[in-house]
């Protein structure tokens, strides 16, 4: 199980993301097997379901990257008619998912999502996964 202190840490990273990036409507951190650890939303979002689906997508991304010998899959971008979703590996265990309804916000969202994921990974407390 993920300790509460780690969830609080993730939440603090999401808060910082929201302060810096005004196009993000919802963001969440989930385990690679689809369990929601932390979330923050400006607009309502089915975060638990998106977390699970995001983990599937990320795993498919990893499988495709492996198939093509492209190394590790870092980011998956889902560009939709009415919005954007970014799926970002934080490390081998966690995924950052960012949702935006701004079609023109890809650059900003990508930039902040990537830096948030990197920073989250760098300062991550040691997690006893039991």
């Amino acid at each position: 199980m993920i300790p509460q202190s780690v969830k609080v840490y993730f939440y603090s990273q999401l808060q910082e993301l929201f302060q810096n990036c005004d196009v993000v409507d919802a963001a969440m951190v989930s385990t690679l097997d689809g369990r929601l650890c932390a979330e923050k939303q400006r607009a309502e979002c089915a975060s638990e379901r998106v977390s699970v689906m995001g983990s599937s997508l990320m795993a498919l991304g990893d499988a495709i990257a492996k198939e093509l010998a492209h190394g590790v899959c870092d980011i998956i971008i889902s560009e939709n008619a009415d919005g954007l979703v970014l799926f970002n590996h934080i490390n081998d265990d966690f995924v950052l998912i960012c949702v935006s309804s701004s079609k023109n916000g890809l650059g900003s969202l990508l930039s902040w999502a990537r830096s948030t994921a990197q920073k989250t990974a760098e300062n991550m407390p040691k997690i006893p996964m039991t």
């Binding site: 199980m1 097997d33 599937s56 499988a63 081998d92 265990d93």
Partner: peptide
Amino acid sequence: PIHTEARASDIVRRMKSETTVAM
């Protein structure tokens, strides 16, 4: 086969270390 497995972080860990998450 193509596998999409992720490290299990929940009760599944009792049975196996990795679990299929897409297909």
